[in-house]
Design a protein around this nucleic acid. Structure first.
Lengths: 241, 241
DNA sequence: CGACTCATTGACGTAGCTCAAGGTATGTGG
DNA sequence: CCACATACCTTGAGCTACGTCAATGAGTCG
């Protein structure tokens, strides 16, 4: 996955679009991070990085593997918020306590290796390295961007457009926009959790996309057959110009 | 408004709840900011801080007045995202370009005075002052918290609960939780924009709350008559324990 | 081969939307 | 101070997108 590693003020050629998968931003700092006090942790697929209901005491920098971050709502819905891969940190570094963090869950979707810091340890590194501090800020900006996309754009789209947007973005997050057909490895239940729709509605909308030969679906895999047709369903905020 | 000005690792007594109105975080740095290159800007009520469609080139630190930040969706809905008052900065400092920022609008809801920096100027201050850098990060964390609240909680609530949550939070944002009756100065159209509901639906839900003597409403003012009853309608994420 | 999890499809209910017609404060110019 | 315009608010009728419930099929794995 290509990631913009800018640490200076820079005008990219294309303004950035939302993403659901974060990676790469802290790779330039891996050596630096390893020089400071830390703990190496290995987490098996399916395990949680820490127990929900606890305040966030640690910051993890991902070396390998992927993490899924979600929240379980009091009336039973599971909202998937983001995925984090190598070179991302989670949760973002800050020095406050938020109620809502107590109900966030972080699950390894593959075996993982992470470098773990306490908030105090990370605060020291943060204070001594303005470049790293800037990356923390840019990490937050990307996270805000994903959330703003949902709050200001997806909220007003039909379930059809929501789904098309998400599939397109997941495709891009994998760096697969060029090669069609592109496979996205995700269950319909996960799609529903990412979109805030019911599983049944996701099935229906996928059915429509399938009828138009835009995608084909099998157990846990969506294949994008016709990216151009898919784009024609997406909303403006999603697409490159 | 009381604001947690923590710049060290600290465990507050109460985990923080979401807020829609941001202020105070950068007040300790006002003198510091004024020592660096800046421009003082005055913006009249109703004017925009910068034109939509432009990349965000500047960072404004608010000295006085209040700003409303919203996005207009391609199919006509206006989503209100946040309000910023004295001691907040807007937009958050970062060094990337995001597509979605182009459609964010920032309108002065009162006459305003702001200290304006270019990204380059702010980047210098950021690099030289770890304390200020930490406040930028904490500012982002609070912003993320407001967005997560909407994405992970409000999304699954009925319009009744959504509205109750919002009224309670607006009340708290003003620091008025103690004194009932508490007045919230907001039109029903703004409530609709904050919640992603139709104006008509907001009227209906307010009507129900009125029947229960929880609120009374007049032109542009909602008065909370019975905070305890209002709390009984709210969802868990909204309330203090 | 039985027991999962994942996907499909139909029947039906409803929350919240749109459209529409009106009512009531606030502000402005004469 | 009145006439008129302009916000803002209220209420009803009807529609529809999406949710729920339920029954069934289709891969996958020990």
């Amino acid at each position: 996955m290509t990631v913009n590693k800018t640490n200076q003020i820079s005008r990219q050629t294309q303004p950035l679009r939302p993403r659901y998968y974060f990676s790469g931003m802290f790779e330039p700092f891996l050596d630096l991070l390893l020089q400071h006090d830390h703990v190496i942790k290995h987490v098996k697929k399916g395990e949680l990085l820490w127990q929900p209901g606890q305040p966030h005491e640690k910051i993890d920098c991902i070396v390998s593997g992927t993490l899924m971050n979600y929240a379980d709502h009091e009336n039973g819905f599971r909202k998937i918020i983001s995925f984090h891969g190598p070179g991302s940190i989670f949760p973002g570094f800050h020095t406050m306590d938020f109620q809502i963090e107590l109900s966030l869950v972080n699950e390894a979707v593959t075996d993982m290796e992470v470098i773990e810091f306490t908030k105090e340890q990370f605060a020291d590194i943060f204070a001594q390295n303005p470049d790293l501090a800037l990356s923390v800020v840019n990490w937050y900006a990307m996270y805000v961007n994903r959330l703003l996309f949902e709050v200001a754009d997806q909220e007003y789209n039909s379930s059809q457009v929501k789904l098309a947007n998400l599939l397109y973005i997941l495709c891009r997050d994998q760096g697969n926009l060029e090669k069609t057909p592109c496979q996205v490895f995700v269950t319909q239940e996960e799609l529903a959790g990412l979109l805030g729709l019911s599983r049944v509605q996701v099935t229906r909308e996928l059915g429509l996309l399938r009828k138009e030969n835009i995608v084909s679906a099998s157990r846990g895999i969506i294949t994008i057959l016709d990216l151009e047709k898919l784009k024609s369903v997406c909303s403006f905020q999603t697409l490159e110009t």
